[in-house]
């Protein structure tokens, strides 16, 4: 298992990636299904890396990425 430092660095990278995708989706008014699909895929990889059971409610449509970001912030205590 990766060290704590590695997990934190990767967690920050995932968070930044999520923020960038949210910004991109907003700017290009991405289809809600695309946003939801991206959140689902990214969330699966993120949860597998952190080995945490998903407890946060999943968002729908354009809110899906925001819900994933909230989940990441809650995991790191940044919220």
């Amino acid at each position: 298992m990766a060290s704590d430092e590695t997990r934190r660095a990767l967690g920050r990278a995932f968070r930044e990636l999520t923020l960038n995708l949210i910004g991109l989706f907003e700017l290009y008014e991405a289809d809600p299904e695309l946003v939801e699909g991206a959140a689902e895929a990214l969330g699966k990889v993120y949860r597998a890396h952190l080995q945490q059971r998903p407890t946060a409610p999943r968002g729908r449509g354009r809110q899906a990425m925001d819900a994933l970001l909230d989940e990441m912030d809650a995991a790191t205590g940044a919220a």
Binding site: L19, N20, E26, L69
Partner: peptide, 9 residues
């Protein structure tokens, strides 16, 4: 933030 898109988010 790494990029302006992140700020936008």
């Amino acid at each position: 933030h790494e990029t302006p898109l992140s700020v936008l988010a």
